[in-house]
């Protein structure tokens, strides 16, 4: 189990568009509410109403400032982070019990809550901080890619996608088969230069990130201004205004037409 299955043709994963994420936390709480009653139940919160409230979350959004070369200003990039469902995930191979596994059919990395002993080693092996230990449950929790939604026959077809993707208001999260070069997500990655996190670690993440687009401001737009010939702007305006005719594009007087048919209210 802990040994990886042969690479699957199907590689389900997420493509996250850092150019559009506004950091609204919709994916974060949607994930929490689905999974705290779904496969990953419960996602425990400790001292939920006291100081230092913290809990298990499978998806978190960071905010970074990125200072571009030669610029005074930084831009803020919101950065959702969850399991990347790597192709060669050490979090799976280090697991002593086989509770952590990569599904052969679609590549989803899961933890079996029935057999996890809660040794936490998988969370040490993950460079992406994708695994969080649930103290009350005594097992490791992680993004399941909503395996209990995407195939769920009790849900409407349009709901059969990860909770975070369905929630995302700006459409910054995309779900699909990254093993299929023709899929929408693969095409997005190709078009937008989607990239891996920490590729040098060798985990081969399936999830991809789309980089923020170049901005279009004073740093890279050509300077331009509306023409200002010499002389009085007011006089020019007056001449311009004098030529205006209000009715010239109205060709027919509608009172001559029967427009009642257009009243459908």
């Amino acid at each position: 189990m802990t040994s990886l299955p042969p690479p699957s043709a199907k590689k389900l994963g997420l493509v996250i568009d850092l150019d559009t994420c506004v950091g609204c936390q919709a994916c974060v709480t949607s994930c929490k509410e689905w999974n705290t009653q779904g496969y990953s139940e419960p996602l425990t919160d400790t001292t939920p109403y006291g100081a230092d409230a913290s809990g298990v979350w499978l998806n978190r959004v960071h905010g970074y400032e990125v200072k571009e070369q030669g610029q005074d200003q930084s831009r803020i990039v919101h950065f959702p982070r969850s399991c990347l469902h790597c192709e060669t995930p050490a979090c799976v191979t280090v697991c002593p019990t086989g509770a952590s596994y990569k599904r052969a059919e679609d590549g989803i990395v899961l933890v079996n809550p029935e057999t996890c002993i809660g040794c936490k080693l998988c969370s040490w092996a993950c460079p992406y901080g994708a695994r969080e230990y649930d103290v009350s449950h005594g097992v490791m929790k992680k993004c399941t890619l909503c395996v209990d939604r995407i195939y769920n026959e009790n849900l409407e077809v349009e709901d059969r996608q990860p909770a975070c993707v369905k929630a995302c208001p700006t459409g910054a999260r995309h779900f699909g088969d990254l093993g299929d070069a023709d899929s929408k997500v693969s095409q997005l990655v190709a078009e937008r230069g989607g990239y891996d996190l920490l590729p040098e670690m060798g985990y081969k993440p399936v999830n991809k990130y789309l980089p923020p687009r170049a901005r279009r401001d004073a740093t890279n737009q050509k300077a331009e201004a509306l023409p200002k010939p010499d002389g009085s702007a007011f006089d020019r305006l007056f001449v311009w205004a004098d030529k205006l005719l209000s009715g010239k594009q109205a060709t027919v007087r509608a009172s001559d037409l029967d427009h009642s048919s257009k009243l459908e209210g």
Binding site: L18, H62, G63, E65, E68, Q69, Y195, P212
Partner: peptide, 14 residues
């Protein structure tokens, strides 16, 4: 992966 744009620093923790 944001090194492709510039220097990164943390702004908001999740």
């Amino acid at each position: 992966g944001l090194g492709r744009i510039g220097r990164v620093s943390q702004w908001e923790v999740p």
